[in-house]
Write a protein that binds this DNA or RNA. Structure first.
Lengths: 190, 190
DNA sequence: TCTTTATTTGACTGCTCGTTCCAGAACCAT
DNA sequence: ATGGTTCTGGAACGAGCAGTCAAATAAAGA
């Protein structure tokens, strides 16, 4: 059997993620996708189905990666509070390009109109909050975080803060602004 | 001079605000605008210019109203901290339909690509933060808020929380979730 | 009633959209 | 080379897009 060079599916998907994150679903044309992904138009349809299916796969992949990265960052040893701080702060300092978080972007653009999009957002938000909640519980066990704090509430709040940071970054907030906001948010856990 | 019945410009603009807030800029067609605004297609172009101009005017109007309402709610007499709580909480309980905050939506959809949109967002965010900062300063003067709090940082943080609440509401968070998040956020000011 | 003016509506333009079909180029194993 | 397979890209599709023009309609003052 003959097998010509195949394009890098993951790289193409990653490029689609970035393009969708920058311009949104409606704001991204298939022509732009083809160009940014560096593949032929027909390959896009053969490999990913259609625009909506590609979006779902990109969103799914993005959320999975994000949750995984955060879990790895939070579940490593050391002070839970410091881990949370590092996670938020690390994000706040890592922003450079004009790219929206794809997960937040999907919520803002679709709300709950698209069932499939909403399902991805819901499940990844749940994972995120479970991870945060576990870390906060660990902080309580260690006496770092006061006992009156409810881990679920605190986790949801951290998530809200995370969202706020992402949107403010998209709006052009400076690193210093974001860092100061992280510091303020962490006061709640102290 | 003759004067036939004129349609209600403000009502039409308000309808456009709601439609843009629900479907975003790219997701809103002129046909949908005409239908939701209840006016003729030509009237839309005669009165508002084109789709982009209409969006800018709707966004401007929305931001102006929002800032005004918040200023009124915060600048009235009484405990500054309680005012902030009431403002956030009031918002959290007032959510029902699947409508995105137009300001946050514009940031998420456009980032800083559209200079005019970005300018509106920037100036209204500045106003918002000034109002919050003044209220927080008042709280410090009254001893409600500890002196180590920087009003500007706290105001930006409250703004971030506000954004987080709006996005979570758009994503389908319950009133109780939002209320609990507000309570967590207020711990930072105590 | 007649005129004036605001609004609506239908036809239409030119463009872009997402998508499909198909011909051919690129590639690798034989 | 040859054959089999994958990817590409031009042509085309129908649909929908934003926006324009002009004719039709409706209302209120003269």
């Amino acid at each position: 059997m003959a097998r010509p060079k195949a394009f890098d599916r993951d790289a193409a998907l990653a490029a689609a993620m970035k393009t969708f994150a920058t311009y949104g679903y409606e704001g991204t044309s298939t022509a732009l996708l083809v160009k940014s992904m560096g593949i032929g138009r027909q390959s896009l349809y053969d490999t990913f189905g259609d625009k909506h299916a590609l979006y779902l796969e990109a969103l799914q992949h993005y959320c999975f990666d994000s949750v995984g990265q955060l879990a790895a960052a939070l579940q490593s040893a050391g002070s839970p509070l410091a881990r949370i701080e590092a996670a938020l702060l690390g994000f706040a300092t890592r922003i450079q390009d004009d790219t929206m978080c794809l997960g937040v972007g999907s919520i803002c653009e679709f709300g709950r109109r698209d069932r499939e999009v909403a399902a991805i957002g819901k499940s990844s938000a749940a994972s995120l909050q479970n991870i945060f909640a576990a870390t906060i519980q660990r902080g309580k066990d260690l006496g770092e975080i006061p006992p009156e704090i409810d881990p679920k509430d605190a986790a949801r709040f951290i998530n809200a803060t995370f969202i706020g940071l992402k949107v403010m970054a998209r709006g052009g907030a400076t690193h210093d602004d974001l860092r100061a906001t992280v510091q303020m948010a962490l006061r709640c856990l102290g």
